[in-house]
């Protein structure tokens, strides 16, 4: 049994490195996602802090659209990289969560229309 295990290990080591290169690219992308998330978050906070200063001339509605855009962008990169949605075999996962987003956005739109008109 011990000898068998040894051969198994040998047979899979080269394959393992190949597959790891293909599917697990190491921490680089994940650290980039983290850095980008921190920057997008900081940008949102700074934008609002600036809008709150006395002599700023930016419209609050413009800042709102800007920071919601940043939030959506951050959500997409985290879903893609940290939750591996960009990887192969996530077709049904995308359908599942996209349907959830669709229903959620419909509720949001209904709520906002109801409160605005």
């Amino acid at each position: 049994m011990a000898g068998t295990e040894h051969t198994v290990e040998h047979a899979s080591t080269s394959e393992l490195t190949v597959r790891r290169k293909q599917r697990h690219e190491g921490p680089r992308n994940h650290l980039l996602t983290f850095g980008l998330s921190i920057m997008l978050t900081a940008l949102s906070f700074v934008a609002v802090a600036y809008a709150l200063t006395e002599d700023s001339h930016v419209e609050p509605w413009f800042v709102s659209f800007f920071i919601v855009g940043l939030a959506i962008f951050q959500a997409v990169i985290q879903l893609g990289f940290w939750m591996h949605m960009k990887d192969k075999g996530h077709g049904y996962a995308i359908v599942g969560i996209a349907f959830g987003f669709f229903v959620a956005l419909t509720c949001l739109a209904a709520g906002l229309l109801w409160s605005w008109w």
Binding site: G96, I97, A98, F99, G100, F101, V103, A104, L105, C107, L108, A110, G111, L112
Partner: peptide, 13 residues
């Protein structure tokens, strides 16, 4: 998680 989106979506709304 799709269902969770609906839950949080309604609470946000």
């Amino acid at each position: 998680l799709g269902g969770e989106c609906v839950l949080f979506g309604t609470l946000f709304a």
